[in-house]
Design a protein around this nucleic acid. Structure first.
Length: 505
RNA sequence: GGCGCCUUCGUCUAGUGGCCUAGGACGUGGCCCUCUCACGGCUAAAACACGGGUUCGAUUCCCGUAGGCGCUACCA
């Protein structure tokens, strides 16, 4: 098995919003597919009708749209291996389950859920397997005619996989190497449920991956314990020679304490664990998303890519194309990774710096308009270019840029105490006169003339500039003063300066 | 409980027997830059879980212990 075309899939269950850990799994699948010129398949695993959540599928699709990760085939796209929604593949599974039953590799079991529950309560580590199945109610322990009668009579039953005990099952994992589990510890897994007439994940998964010609199964580590079962299923169907290669990814852990990253962590620590905002249709509660929180999809992707993988160099900022080129399953780590929200923020900061100023300016427009501020786009872009270095999120941009467009109405008290001296009003008035006399209000011209004035008067540069800043900005921060005043223009600069003198005295 | 996976700075990680006085990044502190605040640059503190082996030599190989995580459903 070698020259097969690379085909991978991302197969979530529509049980709620797409978890960020799921996004990473999808990303690794995507990178792997693209690198090998393979296909990236989108399958919906909705074999548990009880956990189905309305809108989840649409949410997942929208998430990938936002992230810029495109599928080649699957739900909503099509392809020649459809349908791609498991609930629409009932007949297919039925056929394959029957095949297993006919071959004596699976059997009917009539034990009800409550009977099993009672059994588990009664026997300490009860497991439905070779050692116990003959004492249960199934087609192995009961006479054939009784079984027939039960089925014909419409009795509820499940189909269980008959696991032969005492065999070491090897799972060759790309990330973890040879993992061996003895079949005796495996139970006779339910393959087909009585409740909703649908297969369980295990059966549907194997059948679909085979029929969809999936070459590599890249999924979370939580599946590692059931991988031997999957190997046994491939073998039972006689598909072992085309069995996909496995790669079990390390889990994403809570930022603090222990355990798997969960929705609660996001709420508690105040950061999103979902790509998009999610409104639970049942409870009505809302969970924040990366998109709404102001993250750039490229930053989220870059950050996620490095959670459990690294290129082996010291490069950390990588575009999607670079990730596709550099990604390597063999370089994935084995241990779970704690989610570091601060670093994710840093990535976003980095990506904002790489954004086009005009683009950023456009994204800021709604906030400006909300405050009734209008300004030419090129001017806004210029300001944004000056200010973006100090923000981590686009939505912080307007706050840091506002003073360019809105004159201060009040002055920061701490800065006033520190920077506004007794002589400041007089000096600022003098400065206003100096500025008024400048015809060419360009940055360099202003600087030359003002500095010359400071020197002639023997003033302290810091004192002048800081008081000037307080007057123009309203507080003690911002870019170089003449960068600001050049944008403001002479008229606005003088207006702010003279008003400050009036207010601050 | 059983089974499996895992274990390098607070966090993400590099490291595949000598290059390690263990490297980078986030975060934290300091310094520089400077008209302020950021950015940036420099710098500091900060880790090989523990115990046995193997070896001339172990972060690196083996065993054990501990700890963490996962699975153990007619959920995925």
């Amino acid at each position: 098995m070698s020259e097969r075309k690379v085909r991978v899939r991302f197969a979530p269950s529509p049980t709620g919003p797409l978890h960020i850990g799921g996004v990473r799994t999808a990303l690794y699948n995507y990178l792997f597919a693209r690198q090998h010129g393979g296909d990236f398949i989108f399958r919906i695993e909705d074999t548990d009708s009880n956990r189905f959540v309305l809108g989840a599928e649409e949410y997942i699709i929208e998430s990938f749209k936002w992230l810029g990760l495109e599928f080649d085939e699957g739900v909503g796209i099509g392809g020649d291996c459809g349908p791609y929604r498991q609930s629409e593949r009932r007949d297919i599974y039925k056929h394959y389950v029957q095949e297993l039953i006919d071959a004596g590799k699976a059997y009917y079991a009539f034990d009800t859920p409550s009977e099993l529950e009672a059994k588990r309560a009664e026997v300490k580590n009860f497991q439905y397997d070779a050692s116990t199945r003959m004492a249960m109610r199934n087609s192995l322990s009961m006479p054939a005619d009784e079984v027939r009668g039960l089925i014909d009579g419409g009795a509820a039953y499940v189909v269980r996989f008959k696991i032969e005990p005492g065999e070491d099952v090897h799972v060759n994992d790309i990330i973890r190497g040879d993992v061996v589990i003895n079949s005796s510890i495996l139970d006779d897994k339910v393959l087909y449920k009585s409740a909703d007439g649908l297969p369980t994940y295990h059966l549907a998964n194997i059948v679909d991956d085979h029929l969809m010609r999936v070459s590599h199964v890249i999924r979370g580590e939580e599946w590692l314990p059931s991988a031997p079962l999957h190997v046994l299923l491939y073998r039972a169907f006689g598909w072992e020679d085309t069995m996909p290669q496995f790669a079990h990814l390390p889990l994403l852990l809570k930022p603090e304490g222990n355990g798997k990253l969960s929705k609660r962590d996001g709420d508690r620590l105040g950061f999103p664990v979902f790509p998009l905002e999610w409104h639970d249709p049942k409870t009505g509660e809302m969970s924040s998303g990366y998109r709404e929180a102001g993250y750039l999809p490229e930053a989220v992707i870059n950050f996620l890519a490095l959670l459990g993988w690294n290129p082996g160099t010291e490069q950390e900022i990588m575009s999607l194309d670079e990730l596709i080129r550099l990604f390597d399953l063999h370089r994935c780590s084995k241990a779970g990774a704690k989610f570091d929200f601060e670093k994710c923020k840093w990535f976003n900061h980095q990506y904002i710096q790489r954004c086009d100023d005009t683009d950023l300016a456009r994204q800021m427009q709604p906030q400006m308009e909300a405050e009734g501020v209008t300004a030419p786009l090129d001017k806004v872009a210029k300001v944004v270019g000056m200010m973006k270095g100090r923000v981590s999120f686009v939505k912080e941009l307007w706050d840091t840029c506002r003073f360019f467009f809105v004159a201060p109405t009040e002055y920061d008290e701490k800065t006033r105490k520190k920077r506004w001296k007794e002589e400041s009003p007089r000096q600022m008035l003098e400065l206003a006169d100096v500025l008024e006399g400048i015809d060419d209000f360009s940055l360099h011209n202003q600087e030359r003339i003002v500095m010359q004035w400071i020197e002639e008067k023997g003033y302290n540069t810091g004192l002048i500039m800081n008081a000037f800043r307080l007057a123009i900005v309203g507080e003690g921060k911002g870019p170089q003063m003449f960068d600001i005043t050049e944008v403001l223009g002479k008229e606005e600069t003088l207006r702010r300066l003279r008003r400050a003198v009036e207010v601050l005295k």
